[in-house]
């Protein structure tokens, strides 16, 4: 057993193995852990970009009791023995975070009412908690045209927050990355540069890792507000991936397939394009039962009126009560 390191975050302590980041430790502690818009634990090299996870290190370590001079990205900063961290308890952190959220929103379109991602958008959730009403931004917002990148994915660049997740996902999950970040500064964009299609196997996962509605599933049948559809754990036997997915149903029709996400909003098991895009028949899947989306989700929190589901499906009735 390695020596565990003790870290205290907002007054609560936990022991973690060396190499653990502040964010990972905070997630283990539960409660109000820092948000993360760019870091993705299963994708190497992600993190450090969005800056919403900034925290204050009030004591660097047992042997070095000094605070760190600046706020640090909790997704990348590793825990040291005796480190003391302030997240929610630091007004400085909250102010910085509100600032970052404001920056993320100034060029983001205010089109939640027509965005497919509404209801499952990390930015929307974040701005609930850290945003202020209205905007101080009076300048023109950045805009791009919506484009189809291949048969499966639509890119709505105007909504992108340049988290780079989709780039790392394409690099690490597919055999050849064809899209990336072009240009620089605030005119940077996600693009294939030439009219290239993103249809390498496993490329569909870029949709799931996108924290906003910039990358969406073109095969999403009769586009729906998510809270009008109902998520079910489903699986099929697949040679390429685990086949463990969520089937989003409207009535007894599957309108979309996604990967399953954990409590931190990260995909548990990346799925192949065939499972995601090609199997939309109920008969393709074994439905395990309704997916618990967690308490915070609008999908389960009754923030919106849920439609009555007619489960003409071979599911166990006890799962379908709501």
């Amino acid at each position: 057993m390695e020596n565990l390191l003790k870290v205290t975050i907002d007054g609560k302590s936990i022991e973690v193995p060396p190499g653990t980041t502040i964010l990972q430790a905070a997630r283990q502690l539960g409660g109000n852990y820092p948000p993360a818009m760019c870091y993705y634990s299963s994708l190497k090299d992600t993190g450090g970009k969005c800056r919403v996870c900034l925290v204050k290190v009030a004591q660097t370590s047992e042997t070095n009791p000094r605070p760190m001079p600046k706020l640090v990205a909790s997704c990348l900063t590793r825990v040291e023995q005796g480190m003391v961290v302030e997240n929610q308890s630091s007004p400085e952190v909250l102010e910085a975070r509100n600032g970052v959220v404001e920056f993320l929103l100034i060029n983001h379109p205010l089109d939640c009412p027509v965005c497919d991602q509404a209801g499952e958008c990390d930015l929307q959730n974040l701005s609930y908690e850290h945003g202020t009403e209205g905007t101080r931004y009076e300048e023109q917002r950045r805009e791009f045209n919506k484009i189809d990148i291949g048969p499966y994915v639509q890119l709505h660049m105007t909504r992108c927050i340049l988290c780079y997740r989709c780039v790392y996902a394409a690099e690490q999950l597919t055999d050849s990355r064809v899209h990336g970040v072009l240009n620089r500064g605030d005119v940077s964009e996600i693009s294939t540069y030439i009219q290239n299609a993103i249809d390498k196997d496993f490329s569909g996962n870029i949709i799931d890792v996108c924290p906003v509605g910039a990358l969406t599933d073109k095969t999403y049948r009769f586009k729906q507000r998510v809270w009008f559809s109902k998520p079910f754990n489903a699986h099929r036997s697949c040679a390429k991936c685990s086949g463990q997915t969520i089937a989003w149903m409207k009535g007894d029709a599957i309108i979309r397939i996604t990967a399953r996400k954990n409590a931190f909003g990260e995909v548990e098991d990346f799925i192949c394009n065939e499972c995601r895009f090609e199997h939309k028949q109920l008969s393709d899947w074994t439905i395990e039962g309704p997916r618990d989306m967690g308490e915070d989700s609008v999908i389960s929190a009754n923030k919106y009126e849920l439609p009555v589901i007619s489960p003409a499906v071979n599911v166990d009735a006890k799962f379908v009560s709501e």
């Binding site: 970009k49 969005c50 800056r51 920056f103 100034i106 060029n107 780079y164 500064g185 605030d186 005119v187």
Partner: peptide, 13 residues
Amino acid sequence: CGQCSPCREGTGW
């Protein structure tokens, strides 16, 4: 460079 949000968005603002 446009990587991190405060600099990318703040400088333009």
